[in-house]
């Protein structure tokens, strides 16, 4: 298991599973600070896989630099063939569905699971 933690957040992935879990509030200051998280996300695309899951259910807050980071990941996934990308979100967290609809416009094949 790989984990990136900060004062208010945790991002983790499990070896052999193409899932990345987000938790807390992410307010890093720009692309440099988000680079390790973007790398972790891109790591799920490195092998031929059927499905990649990004689990945001416990992510309460994401600033615009974080939205930019997610969009970079989605573009990367879109531009590779055969990636079946799913975002798992919560109805109880107001920004999830709203902000993800823009990511879905970037990659129409992106699936959003409400959980």
């Amino acid at each position: 298991m790989k984990t990136i933690t900060g004062e208010s957040f945790e991002v983790r992935t499990e070896e052999g599973r193409n899932v990345v879990f987000f938790k807390g509030a992410l307010r890093l200051s720009g692309s440099e600070d988000y680079a390790p998280i973007l790398e972790m996300l891109k790591g799920t695309l490195s092998e031929p896989v059927a499905t990649v899951l990004v689990d945001l259910r416990d992510l309460d807050f994401l600033n615009s630099s974080g939205i930019t980071m997610l969009s970079r990941f989605v573009i990367e996934a879109r531009d590779r063939t055969g990636i079946d990308l799913h975002f798992v979100v919560s109805e109880a967290i107001p920004w999830h569905l709203r902000s993800l609809k823009n990511l879905q416009r970037l990659m129409p094949a992106l699936k959003i699971r409400l959980n």
Binding site: S31, S65, R72, N102, L103
Partner: peptide
């Protein structure tokens, strides 16, 4: 959408404005 596509090159400048647009 245009900002997100431009932001794919990794620069913060091209990503700026996304907060206001959001």
């Amino acid at each position: 959408l245009a900002r997100m596509e431009q932001g794919a090159d990794g620069s913060d400048e091209s990503a700026s404005g996304l907060g206001l647009l959001t």
